[in-house]
C-alpha cells in the first residue's frame, strides 16, 4: 500500500533538489558584488522610508477564516462523494441537509457583508 507512495516521496525530493540545485549552482558561477544601494529594499528608486512590516487589512484575516471553514466542509464532502453510489438515497439526503446548513451560513455571511471589499 505505502510502496505506491514511495515514488512520490522521491519525486518531492527531486523537486526540492532541482530548486535548491539551481540556486546553489547559480551561486557558484554567478557574480556576487553586493553594495549597500543594491541590497536596499526596492521602492521605485527612493530610499525606503519606513519599515515594510505594515499592518494589513483585517479583511484578509476574515478571508482566511472563511477559507478554513469552507475547506473543512470540502474535506467532509470528499469521502461522501466517493461512496455516494453505495450509500443510496439516505446517504444522499443526509448530506443535502448538511449542505443546506452550510448554505444558510453562507447566506448569513453574505448578508452580513463579510464578502464585500468596498
Amino acid at each position: 500500500m505505502l510502496t505506491n507512495y514511495f515514488p512520490i516521496l522521491v519525486f518531492i525530493a527531486i523537486g526540492i533538489a532541482v530548486g535548491g540545485g539551481l540556486i546553489i549552482f547559480s551561486r557558484l558561477i554567478a557574480p556576487n558584488k553586493p553594495n549597500a544601494e543594491k541590497l536596499s529594499p526596492y521602492e521605485c528608486g527612493f530610499p525606503a522610508f519606513e519599515d515594510a512590516r505594515l499592518p494589513f487589512d483585517v479583511r484578509y484575516y476574515l478571508v482566511a477564516i472563511l477559507f478554513i471553514l469552507f475547506d473543512l466542509e470540502t474535506a467532509f464532502f470528499v469521502p461522501w462523494a466517493v461512496v455516494l453510489h453505495k450509500i443510496g438515497l439516505y446517504g444522499f439526503l443526509s448530506m443535502m441537509v448538511f449542505l443546506l446548513i452550510l448554505v444558510v451560513g453562507f447566506i448569513y455571511e453574505w448578508k452580513k457583508g463579510a464578502l464585500e471589499w468596498e
Binding site: 530548486g19 549552482f25 547559480s26 556576487n32 536596499s40
Partner: peptide, 27 residues
Amino acid sequence: LLFKEMILPTASNPILFVIAPVIAIAP
C-alpha cells in the same frame, strides 16, 4: 538568468528568502 547575480537584500530574512523559490518550484 543562471549567470546573473542573485541579490539577497539586507533587510530580508535570508533563510526564508532562499527557501521560498524552492517551495515555488518543488510542488
